[in-house]
């Protein structure tokens, strides 16, 4: 593991029956940077997040967080070690209030945690919704609350699984601004996103997954011109034509 890597995934495999969802994935997320992960639908991106965050404990291989092995640990143990994540679809606690949604992610139940939660809500203009049930928020607001929830423990690494999907442009900008701000303060991000504009604008480097394998890695400009990547997204013929046109 290189000194700069906060998260290292080594030769991780995950099979579901005869389907190889992950086939020897190896990658590193550098400390203090924003790393993107792209790939066609079904390429294994979310499965990798499930494995790394401990929700799926059926994988083989090795995963290190800050040099410590975490594969096989419970999600709550991994969270305590400084890794937090959001889900592909919003997972706010629907019957808990917005404030409770945040407070449950604090390690304690005291005034300091409450004030931190209120402070975070204030930053994004949701303080007045503290007493509102999670299910009564709009979808975009729910995604934002889910994002704020992972900030409650000041995690070193945050995994975001398509955080802006289904979110209106205003809230989306709020979200990405917060990501940039937190990254500036040292928080590391590992982001799955389909919006290539966001990936290009936000990420320092990008991994491309296809059929459970890393097929490319580098900065966005490098991977966007990669033939293997184009083939994975558009098929071999289209990729070839695209290369010719260039």
């Amino acid at each position: 593991m290189t000194a700069a890597a906060l998260l290292e995934v080594r030769d991780v495999h995950r099979d579901f029956g005869g389907v190889h969802a992950l086939s020897g994935v190896t990658l590193q997320v550098a400390r203090g940077r924003i790393t993107g992960m792209i790939g066609p639908n079904g390429s294994g991106k979310t499965t990798l997040f499930q494995v790394v965050s401990g929700i799926d404990r059926g994988a083989t291989g090795q995963v290190f967080l800050d040099g410590e092995p975490i594969l096989g640990l419970r999600p709550s143990q991994i969270y305590q070690r400084g890794l937090a994540r959001t889900f592909q679809l919003s997972r706010v606690f629907p019957q808990l209030t917005v404030l409770e949604n945040l407070m449950v992610a604090g390690h304690r139940h005291d005034r300091a945690v409450r004030e931190r939660a209120i402070g975070l809500l204030e930053k994004v203009g949701l303080r007045e919704y503290s007493a509102v049930a999670g299910s009564d928020l709009s979808y975009g607001q729910q995604r934002l609350v889910e994002f704020l929830r992972v900030l409650m423990s000041d995690p070193a690494l945050i995994l975001l699984d398509e955080p802006a999907a289904g979110v209106n442009p205003t809230l989306r900008n709020t979200l990405w601004d917060m990501v940039r701000h937190l990254n500036g303060q040292g928080t590391t991000f590992f982001v799955i996103e389909h919006d290539m504009g966001v990936i290009a604008d936000l990420c320092d480097d990008v991994y491309v997954l296809s059929e459970g394998q890393v097929i490319a890695h580098g900065d966005f400009e490098t991977v966007r011109g990669n033939d293997t990547v184009l083939a994975a997204y558009f098929g071999k013929t289209a990729a070839h034509r695209g290369t010719e046109n260039d």
Partner: peptide
């Protein structure tokens, strides 16, 4: 009205998500 109750209700709502925010379910 204590931490235990908040965590128990989070388990009721979504056990996996509760585990993912540090709740020892």
């Amino acid at each position: 009205y204590n931490r235990l109750g908040l965590e128990l209700r989070a388990i009721r709502e979504d056990e996996e998500a509760a585990e993912m925010v540090g709740v020892n379910t």
